[in-house]
Amino acid sequence: MPDLGLEVLFKGKNMIRLLGGLWAALKISLISVALSIPLGILLGILMVRKEVVIRAVTRIYLEFIRIMPQLVLLFIVFFGSARAFGSDISGELSSVIVFTLWGTAEMGDLVRGAIISIPKHQYESSAALGLKNSQTYFYIIIPQTVRRLIPLSVNLITRMIKTTSLVLMIGVVEVTKVAQQIIEANRMTSPNAAFGVYLTVFLLYFIACWPLSLLARHLERKWG
Protein backbone atom coordinates (compact mmCIF):
# COMPACT_ATOMS: atom_id res chain seq x y z
CA MET A 1 0.00 0.00 0.00
CA PRO A 2 1.68 3.22 -1.09
CA ASP A 3 1.65 6.27 1.13
CA LEU A 4 -1.41 8.22 0.03
CA GLY A 5 -0.72 11.27 2.16
CA LEU A 6 -4.08 11.08 3.87
CA GLU A 7 -2.65 11.44 7.38
CA VAL A 8 -2.02 15.15 6.73
CA LEU A 9 -5.74 15.76 6.88
CA PHE A 10 -5.92 14.68 10.49
CA LYS A 11 -3.01 16.82 11.65
CA GLY A 12 -3.88 19.94 13.60
CA LYS A 13 -6.76 21.87 12.11
CA ASN A 14 -6.17 20.85 8.50
CA MET A 15 -9.59 19.34 7.86
CA ILE A 16 -11.33 22.31 9.50
CA ARG A 17 -9.26 24.65 7.34
CA LEU A 18 -10.26 22.79 4.19
CA LEU A 19 -13.90 22.98 5.15
CA GLY A 20 -13.44 26.68 5.88
CA GLY A 21 -12.03 27.06 2.36
CA LEU A 22 -15.00 25.23 0.91
CA TRP A 23 -17.30 27.55 2.83
CA ALA A 24 -15.48 30.59 1.37
CA ALA A 25 -16.18 29.24 -2.12
CA LEU A 26 -19.78 28.34 -1.30
CA LYS A 27 -20.38 31.78 0.21
CA ILE A 28 -19.33 33.49 -3.03
CA SER A 29 -21.63 31.26 -5.06
CA LEU A 30 -24.55 31.64 -2.67
CA ILE A 31 -24.33 35.44 -2.65
CA SER A 32 -24.09 35.46 -6.43
CA VAL A 33 -27.05 33.09 -6.77
CA ALA A 34 -29.12 35.23 -4.42
CA LEU A 35 -28.36 38.27 -6.57
CA SER A 36 -28.67 36.52 -9.94
CA ILE A 37 -32.10 35.05 -9.43
CA PRO A 38 -34.08 38.30 -9.09
CA LEU A 39 -31.89 40.07 -11.66
CA GLY A 40 -32.21 37.11 -14.02
CA ILE A 41 -35.99 37.08 -13.72
CA LEU A 42 -35.99 40.77 -14.58
CA LEU A 43 -33.70 40.16 -17.56
CA GLY A 44 -35.83 37.27 -18.76
CA ILE A 45 -38.96 39.41 -18.69
CA LEU A 46 -37.13 42.17 -20.57
CA MET A 47 -35.94 39.67 -23.18
CA VAL A 48 -39.44 38.67 -24.26
CA ARG A 49 -40.50 42.30 -24.81
CA LYS A 50 -41.04 43.39 -28.35
CA GLU A 51 -38.97 46.58 -28.35
CA VAL A 52 -36.07 46.16 -30.74
CA VAL A 53 -33.54 48.14 -28.70
CA ILE A 54 -34.19 46.22 -25.47
CA ARG A 55 -33.99 42.96 -27.40
CA ALA A 56 -30.70 43.89 -29.05
CA VAL A 57 -29.06 45.11 -25.85
CA THR A 58 -30.09 42.10 -23.77
CA ARG A 59 -29.11 39.76 -26.59
CA ILE A 60 -25.62 41.22 -26.89
CA TYR A 61 -25.16 41.09 -23.13
CA LEU A 62 -26.23 37.47 -23.03
CA GLU A 63 -24.10 36.38 -25.98
CA PHE A 64 -20.98 38.14 -24.75
CA ILE A 65 -21.20 36.78 -21.22
CA ARG A 66 -21.96 33.30 -22.46
CA ILE A 67 -19.22 33.04 -25.04
CA MET A 68 -16.44 34.32 -22.77
CA PRO A 69 -14.88 31.81 -20.41
CA GLN A 70 -15.73 32.82 -16.83
CA LEU A 71 -12.04 33.07 -16.04
CA VAL A 72 -11.63 35.74 -18.72
CA LEU A 73 -14.47 37.71 -17.15
CA LEU A 74 -12.80 37.36 -13.75
CA PHE A 75 -9.55 38.70 -15.19
CA ILE A 76 -11.32 41.61 -16.85
CA VAL A 77 -13.02 42.67 -13.64
CA PHE A 78 -10.13 41.92 -11.30
CA PHE A 79 -7.26 43.37 -13.31
CA GLY A 80 -9.28 45.79 -15.40
CA SER A 81 -11.04 47.52 -12.51
CA ALA A 82 -7.79 48.85 -11.10
CA ARG A 83 -7.04 50.42 -14.46
CA ALA A 84 -10.54 51.69 -15.11
CA PHE A 85 -11.44 53.14 -11.72
CA GLY A 86 -8.01 53.70 -10.30
CA SER A 87 -8.93 51.63 -7.27
CA ASP A 88 -8.38 48.04 -6.42
CA ILE A 89 -11.30 45.78 -5.72
CA SER A 90 -10.76 42.61 -3.76
CA GLY A 91 -10.79 39.16 -5.32
CA GLU A 92 -13.95 38.26 -3.45
CA LEU A 93 -15.84 41.31 -4.67
CA SER A 94 -14.65 40.74 -8.26
CA SER A 95 -15.85 37.15 -8.11
CA VAL A 96 -19.24 38.14 -6.78
CA ILE A 97 -19.56 40.76 -9.54
CA VAL A 98 -18.56 38.30 -12.27
CA PHE A 99 -20.68 35.42 -11.03
CA THR A 100 -23.66 37.73 -10.65
CA LEU A 101 -23.22 39.04 -14.20
CA TRP A 102 -22.86 35.51 -15.49
CA GLY A 103 -25.65 34.07 -13.34
CA THR A 104 -27.99 36.86 -14.40
CA ALA A 105 -27.34 36.08 -18.05
CA GLU A 106 -27.88 32.34 -17.60
CA MET A 107 -30.91 32.82 -15.39
CA GLY A 108 -32.34 35.40 -17.80
CA ASP A 109 -32.09 32.90 -20.62
CA LEU A 110 -33.80 30.21 -18.52
CA VAL A 111 -36.62 32.60 -17.59
CA ARG A 112 -37.01 33.63 -21.22
CA GLY A 113 -37.17 29.97 -22.25
CA ALA A 114 -39.73 29.19 -19.55
CA ILE A 115 -41.93 32.15 -20.51
CA ILE A 116 -42.01 31.39 -24.21
CA SER A 117 -42.59 27.71 -23.52
CA ILE A 118 -46.05 28.49 -22.12
CA PRO A 119 -48.38 27.94 -25.07
CA LYS A 120 -50.51 30.82 -26.25
CA HIS A 121 -53.73 28.91 -25.66
CA GLN A 122 -53.11 29.13 -21.92
CA TYR A 123 -53.48 32.89 -22.10
CA GLU A 124 -56.44 32.65 -24.44
CA SER A 125 -58.26 30.01 -22.42
CA SER A 126 -57.89 31.94 -19.20
CA ALA A 127 -59.12 35.09 -20.92
CA ALA A 128 -62.06 33.12 -22.28
CA LEU A 129 -62.84 31.95 -18.75
CA GLY A 130 -63.11 35.59 -17.77
CA LEU A 131 -59.90 35.92 -15.73
CA LYS A 132 -58.35 39.35 -15.50
CA ASN A 133 -54.87 39.96 -16.82
CA SER A 134 -53.36 39.95 -13.34
CA GLN A 135 -55.26 36.79 -12.46
CA THR A 136 -54.02 35.09 -15.61
CA TYR A 137 -50.43 35.74 -14.61
CA PHE A 138 -50.92 34.97 -10.95
CA TYR A 139 -52.89 31.73 -11.24
CA ILE A 140 -51.98 30.35 -14.66
CA ILE A 141 -48.69 31.58 -16.07
CA ILE A 142 -46.43 32.11 -13.06
CA PRO A 143 -47.10 28.71 -11.38
CA GLN A 144 -46.26 26.89 -14.62
CA THR A 145 -43.18 29.01 -15.29
CA VAL A 146 -41.88 28.44 -11.77
CA ARG A 147 -42.27 24.68 -12.09
CA ARG A 148 -40.19 24.68 -15.23
CA LEU A 149 -37.64 27.04 -13.74
CA ILE A 150 -36.85 25.49 -10.38
CA PRO A 151 -35.02 22.34 -11.58
CA LEU A 152 -33.02 24.43 -14.07
CA SER A 153 -32.12 26.98 -11.40
CA VAL A 154 -30.92 24.26 -9.05
CA ASN A 155 -28.67 23.05 -11.86
CA LEU A 156 -27.41 26.58 -12.30
CA ILE A 157 -26.48 26.66 -8.60
CA THR A 158 -24.34 23.53 -8.99
CA ARG A 159 -22.64 25.09 -12.02
CA MET A 160 -22.03 28.21 -9.99
CA ILE A 161 -20.44 26.22 -7.15
CA LYS A 162 -18.20 24.37 -9.61
CA THR A 163 -17.18 27.61 -11.27
CA THR A 164 -16.16 29.21 -7.96
CA SER A 165 -13.09 26.95 -8.08
CA LEU A 166 -11.75 29.50 -10.57
CA VAL A 167 -11.46 32.28 -7.99
CA LEU A 168 -8.20 30.65 -6.92
CA MET A 169 -6.69 32.20 -10.03
CA ILE A 170 -7.36 35.76 -8.86
CA GLY A 171 -5.92 35.15 -5.42
CA VAL A 172 -9.00 34.38 -3.36
CA VAL A 173 -8.26 31.91 -0.58
CA GLU A 174 -10.74 29.09 -1.11
CA VAL A 175 -10.60 25.34 -0.75
CA THR A 176 -8.01 24.61 -3.46
CA LYS A 177 -5.75 27.38 -2.18
CA VAL A 178 -6.00 26.04 1.37
CA ALA A 179 -5.14 22.62 -0.04
CA GLN A 180 -2.01 24.07 -1.67
CA GLN A 181 -1.00 25.71 1.61
CA ILE A 182 -1.45 22.47 3.54
CA ILE A 183 0.57 20.52 0.98
CA GLU A 184 3.36 23.11 1.03
CA ALA A 185 3.48 23.24 4.82
CA ASN A 186 3.82 19.46 5.09
CA ARG A 187 6.20 18.99 2.20
CA MET A 188 8.92 17.49 4.42
CA THR A 189 6.88 15.29 6.70
CA SER A 190 4.46 13.88 4.14
CA PRO A 191 5.69 14.28 0.59
CA ASN A 192 2.68 12.46 -0.83
CA ALA A 193 0.15 14.86 0.66
CA ALA A 194 -0.80 16.17 -2.79
CA PHE A 195 -2.63 12.94 -3.57
CA GLY A 196 -4.70 12.75 -0.41
CA VAL A 197 -5.45 16.43 -0.10
CA TYR A 198 -6.49 17.01 -3.72
CA LEU A 199 -8.56 13.84 -3.61
CA THR A 200 -10.32 15.28 -0.56
CA VAL A 201 -10.95 18.59 -2.34
CA PHE A 202 -12.35 16.65 -5.29
CA LEU A 203 -14.69 14.74 -2.99
CA LEU A 204 -15.69 17.90 -1.09
CA TYR A 205 -16.85 19.52 -4.32
CA PHE A 206 -18.68 16.33 -5.17
CA ILE A 207 -20.43 16.28 -1.79
CA ALA A 208 -21.43 19.92 -2.25
CA CYS A 209 -22.83 19.50 -5.77
CA TRP A 210 -24.18 15.98 -5.98
CA PRO A 211 -27.21 16.39 -3.67
CA LEU A 212 -28.23 19.47 -5.68
CA SER A 213 -27.93 17.54 -8.95
CA LEU A 214 -30.08 14.75 -7.53
CA LEU A 215 -32.64 17.29 -6.32
CA ALA A 216 -32.76 18.93 -9.73
CA ARG A 217 -33.26 15.59 -11.44
CA HIS A 218 -35.97 14.61 -8.96
CA LEU A 219 -37.86 17.88 -9.45
CA GLU A 220 -37.54 17.63 -13.20
CA ARG A 221 -39.11 14.18 -13.13
CA LYS A 222 -41.85 15.23 -10.72
CA TRP A 223 -42.91 18.37 -12.58
CA GLY A 224 -41.60 17.69 -16.08
Binding site: L4, T176, F195, Y198
Partner: peptide, 24 residues
Protein backbone atom coordinates in the same frame (compact mmCIF):
# COMPACT_ATOMS: atom_id res chain seq x y z
CA UNK B 1 -20.69 10.36 -14.84
CA UNK B 2 -21.79 11.62 -11.43
CA UNK B 3 -18.19 12.20 -10.31
CA UNK B 4 -17.21 14.02 -13.45
CA UNK B 5 -20.32 16.19 -13.68
CA UNK B 6 -20.30 17.30 -10.07
CA UNK B 7 -16.69 18.44 -9.74
CA UNK B 8 -14.90 21.37 -11.37
CA UNK B 9 -12.28 20.85 -14.08
CA UNK B 10 -9.71 22.82 -12.09
CA UNK B 11 -9.87 20.36 -9.20
CA UNK B 12 -9.80 17.40 -11.58
CA UNK B 13 -6.68 18.80 -13.23
CA UNK B 14 -4.98 19.45 -9.88
CA UNK B 15 -5.67 15.89 -8.86
CA UNK B 16 -4.36 14.43 -12.14
CA UNK B 17 -1.37 16.75 -12.36
CA UNK B 18 -0.20 17.01 -8.74
CA UNK B 19 -1.94 14.11 -7.02
CA UNK B 20 -1.52 11.12 -9.34
CA UNK B 21 2.30 11.37 -9.68
CA UNK B 22 2.49 10.62 -5.94
CA UNK B 23 1.19 7.14 -6.60
CA UNK B 24 3.41 6.71 -9.61
Amino acid sequence: IELSRNTPLLVQLFFIYYGLPKIG
